[in-house]
């Protein structure tokens, strides 16, 4: 096992990256198993599933930052919930 102390891993960040990695894995499997077509949604730009995932993740990051900025670090789970709703909306309508 290489020494990874310099990367300062914690189980929380490990979980975070594992989540992102599994999302990417699911998307890859999905892209191979079920090839898709681009579609145009409310933003009037053609998007693929990958684009929608990117928009969801980037938006989720800003939702969390905005929550931190406006309400502070308490009840950050609300921001997480809001991000999930946002992501669902992006996958449905964008």
């Amino acid at each position: 096992m290489p020494d990874l102390a310099w990367m300062a891993w914690t189980w929380q960040t490990g979980l975070f990256f594992a989540g992102i990695a599994s999302l990417l894995l699911v998307m890859t499997v999905l892209a191979v198993a079920r090839p898709e077509a681009e579609r145009v949604g409310v933003l009037r730009i053609p998007t693929t599933r990958g684009d929608r995932l990117f928009i969801s993740l980037l938006g989720a990051a800003f939702i969390h930052l905005a929550w931190l900025g406006f309400f502070g670090p308490e009840q950050l789970w609300w921001a997480f919930g809001l991000s999930l709703v946002y992501a669902a909306a992006v996958f449905r309508f964008v």
């Binding site: 990367m7 300062a8 914690t10 990256f17």
Partner: peptide, 22 residues
């Protein structure tokens, strides 16, 4: 990824890190 790891911790050097959350 390392930057993300650093951003939730505090350090006084010598590879010792302390959890600081958000």
């Amino acid at each position: 990824m390392t930057v993300v790891n650093y951003s939730v911790q505090d350090t006084f050097g010598n590879n010792q890190f302390f959890w600081n959350g958000v």
